[in-house]
Design a protein around this nucleic acid. Structure first.
Lengths: 375, 375
DNA sequence: CTGAAAGCGCTTACAG
DNA sequence: CTGAAAGCGCTTACAG
């Protein structure tokens, strides 16, 4: 033990840290090869300057440096504080999040698990979340499940191995380790709830009511007969939209045959294939699609069949994809407030971190009627 | 010192870790309030089970557990190994990346800095990167710069505070701390190089040649006169595309007046506004756009003016956005191989980590002619 | 084959 | 106001 102290003193005198005898990954490098940092600028992935460096240059203890960088109100004289602060700037010191995390602090690292980043609506929500987290000094880990339970479990496992400060799941699927992860991390579900989980934090719209509104719109405009391509029923969101549609049609006495309804996955290709089938069997005046992505696929099927949208056939989507006004002005849709989704999700996560309770935050939606392409 | 040992022995005997006397964040919780983990399942953000728990239950040292989970070939008897392995499964133990990172190991955490996630081409590349990194057991931190140097610096600062194993920058801008970050972390630039940085790793296409090919296509089809809306010239990619265009037109003796050229930012709105201006002043037969996003905006401007695309006016884009075949079949574009972008970028990063040298990887592109919307 | 120990970069209760 | 020390979860050279 005294020997160590000696080494330390010596090291400090030399203004050098004593090198730990460990040489990580040394086995990967054949003996005789160049040592790892011969160039002096070899990318190391490690912070160049540590709290110890700042302390040494400032002639104070690391405790004092820590107090300064954490802006502790007390415990540091104004003079010392100012000196260390300028030293931090000068040395370009940034405290390692890794060290902080291990010490038990918040990492300000958040995870976003997203079912499909190719959906520009989801990308827009991801972007909003990322921007707002950055504004608050946080960062975002992005995971993509592709609507697959095994992939989602793998994402959750990776999240479990890091200390994240919170978790957003944009369109979760049921998966083995979902329950445990949700119990371990503050979690906010976005746009899709997992009902089997019981009480959770959720941000979304009233999909059931929105679907009913769409039906009213369709019926008033007499866009019948109607074909339906809904999303997968494992998604509570898709299921609610379908229920709203069915109930509203039923109440209005409008029949819907089994052949008029098809279930597609949440993709353009899914919408395309099922629309093609539908259009083959009957002349529809409108297609109700469970999402805008599905609607895009349906659009292509209509075009290929020589049907003009919206003159020959109307397409109804769901989501209010930000792309619509540019590339799909013909689309009727339900605009969900994706910007508010992000801000409310972050607000709810902050509330959870402060001990708040789970809440369902149901935001208002808009019905958007498609235009004739601006002409 | 001996006192500590006593505490440890006692603790081990009780099968409990001795609690550190530190109570992080205790000051945030008013005295008399409930203690943090009264519920027993309060989200903690910390791994539930640590290497120490496994060691204790297995009756071995943490060193042995470490050897097992890292699959060290030697140093553990097969019997012990098997026992610990099943214990790891049983306890659902996952080594903390934080602990590993601090110890100097690779984190398998990669950062992707992206200039605009709303661009579906970039989203597609992000998705490919994420998927491939996940396949290799890695995770991806996502950052969005919005083409802004200050925001990019903030992203780089956050990256600096974590030990990332590598960095991808999809469309970098020049910024103060870029050079230092690139020196510190293995970095691969994608789709846009920063020439001032000297030799770097890069994955992209030959934008100059591609632009020349587009000009040939335009001239052969006699889609003239031509209006040009190029991307911002701080982007080397945009600048190369413009140079290719200018040179090719010049060689073919086709004049291009200053009024026919406009610089837009890389957004649909930018394309829209500039196309509107162009269309006001002359009757163009074609618009050359520096990116597909710009082209989408131009499309809207054409529609609003009552011009049919592609019958009245042709639109030429650049990127091969995956959305095109669904929503913009009228678009002529240069398809960059975004899937290969991801795989080559990862391959190059792996090469750098193994001591490889910087390389420019120039991939082939396709010229895609727009269709008449499938009709 | 196995374990004790050092140390990665931090924060904070405790003692001066 | 300030510092020494403990410890977060790991890995590995070293010693047995």
């Amino acid at each position: 033990m005294p020997e160590l102290s000696e080494r330390w003193k010596l090291a400090l005198a030399m203004d050098r840290k004593p090198k730990t005898p460990l040489r990580p990954q040394a086995h990967r490098r054949p003996a005789g090869d160049l040592p790892p940092d011969t160039t002096g600028t070899r990318p190391s992935g490690k912070p160049a300057v540590t709290i110890r460096d700042v302390a040494r240059h400032g002639g104070v203890s690391i405790a004092t440096v820590s107090r300064v960088i954490n802006n502790e109100a007390q415990g540091v004289s104004p003079k010392t504080r100012a000196r260390i602060q300028s030293l931090v700037k000068e040395l370009n010191y940034r405290p390692s999040r890794i060290g902080q995390a291990l010490r038990g602090q918040a990492t300000d690292t958040y995870a976003l698990v997203i079912s499909n980043i190719q959906n520009s609506l989801y990308a827009a929500i991801a972007w909003e979340l990322e921007r707002r987290l950055n504004d608050g000094g946080g960062v975002m880990l992005l995971f993509n499940t592709n609507e697959n339970a095994d992939l989602q479990d793998r994402c959750l496992a990776e999240i479990n191995a890091r200390h994240v400060s919170g978790l957003f799941i944009l369109c979760a699927v049921e998966s083995r380790s979902l329950r445990q992860t949700v119990a371990q991390y503050h979690t906010v579900f976005i746009n899709r709830r997992v009902t089997s989980l019981g009480e959770t934090s959720f941000v979304g719209v009233d999909d059931y009511a929105a679907a009913r509104d769409v039906v009213s719109m369709i019926v008033e405009a007499r866009h019948l007969p109607l074909g339906v391509i809904h999303g997968p029923l494992y998604s509570d969101t898709s299921a609610s939209r379908l229920r709203g549609l069915r109930d509203a049609l039923h109440e209005k006495g409008i029949p819907l045959e089994a052949g008029d309804i098809r279930e597609a996955d949440l993709s353009m290709d899914g919408g395309y294939r099922h629309a093609r089938e539908l259009l083959r069997q009957k002349t529809y005046r409108a297609l109700f699609c469970g999402s805008d992505q599905i609607a895009y696929g349906a659009y292509r099927a209509c075009c290929e069949r020589g049907l003009a949208v919206p003159d020959d056939i109307q397409i109804y989507g769901f989501d209010g994809n930000p792309l619509n006004e540019w590339l799909a002005p013909w689309l009727n849709t339900v605009r969900i407030p994706h910007t508010s989704f992000a801000s409310e999700a972050i607000r709810q996560l902050a509330s959870l971190r402060e001990g708040g309770v789970h809440r369902s935050i149901i935001l208002p939606y808009d019905i958007v009627a498609g235009s004739m392409n601006g002409r």
